[in-house]
Design a protein around this nucleic acid. Structure first.
Lengths: 147, 147
DNA sequence: CTCAATGCAAACCGTTTGCATGCTC
DNA sequence: GAGCATGCAAACGGTTTGCATTGAG
């Protein structure tokens, strides 16, 4: 029973177990991609789970506050996106043509942070990287369309 | 006459030289920091230059499209910020306590981009890094306040 | 003179909030 | 039963847009 783990995540954080928290977290865990509040809202409705959009937002806030999910804000996306937190440091690469988002698990910044700390005097607690470019498919398409 | 250079920037891009374009670009060049559309609007009004906020937005859009200024969207800022484009690759480090933003000119990613290109197949055209942490002053304050 | 720039007011859209009601612990 | 979660409708705030007017080339 996979929902058990989901429910544990919620109760262990000291949160009340409610229908929407369980379903939304389950959805994000299963989806295994970035989803917006609206995406989640639509998916729930499609699955006959009637819920208000503001409840979705409040649920996502609570789950984010408790580090159960991550809120991801990308430059070209107006909407905030959310992902299940699997405790793996990662970044994103975004295709400027088709907007596909891929995940990069390899991070070059650990050494560099030391250096930035020394130079800036900041105590660094985190960072964010986004790469932009064109994915393989779009590179091909662009070559074809301008032959 | 320093405004000459500003005007050149505008006309060289093929843009009409207008009162607001000149003043807004001049402002950004002189300010030498990140400013929001609202900041710019207020600064103009204070300097007796009556302008509509939507004109400020349209002007900033045009200048951004023409790479004369940069539009900067930081995670914790709701507003977009703008800076004069001095053609120096850089990133930002943001204090999570006081929100001070400092600039980092040193960039560790050039080598790494190669690697990401090979692994992802993306043709990378750019990247963005934000660092988060606490600036010197805030580190001191936090030590004092929890002595 | 022509077309782009501007002012103004209204729309947009993702997100938040206040309040009454419902549900978990 | 107490207090947090939810639904609903309205507000919020940065940004965009449609349209009439002005101004640059």
């Amino acid at each position: 029973m996979e929902k058990k783990r989901i429910i544990n995540k919620i109760t262990e954080a000291g949160l009340k177990k409610t229908k929407y928290r369980v379903n939304i977290l389950y959805l994000l865990e299963k989806a295994n991609t970035l989803l917006s509040a609206q995406d989640i809202h639509e998916l729930l409705i499609k699955n006959k789970i009637k819920v208000n959009l503001s409840t979705v937002y409040r649920t996502l806030d609570k789950l984010t506050e408790n580090d159960i999910i991550n809120k991801v804000e990308l430059e070209q996306e107006k909407q905030s996106l959310y992902e299940y937190n699997r405790d793996e440091h990662h970044h994103f690469i975004i295709c400027k043509n088709c907007n596909k988002i891929e995940t990069i698990y390899n991070c070059p910044l650990h050494d560099y942070e030391e250096q930035v700390m020394k130079e800036s005097g900041f105590q660094i607690t985190g960072h964010k990287i986004e790469f932009y470019g064109y994915c393989k498919e779009c590179q091909t398409l662009m070559n074809v369309s301008s032959f």
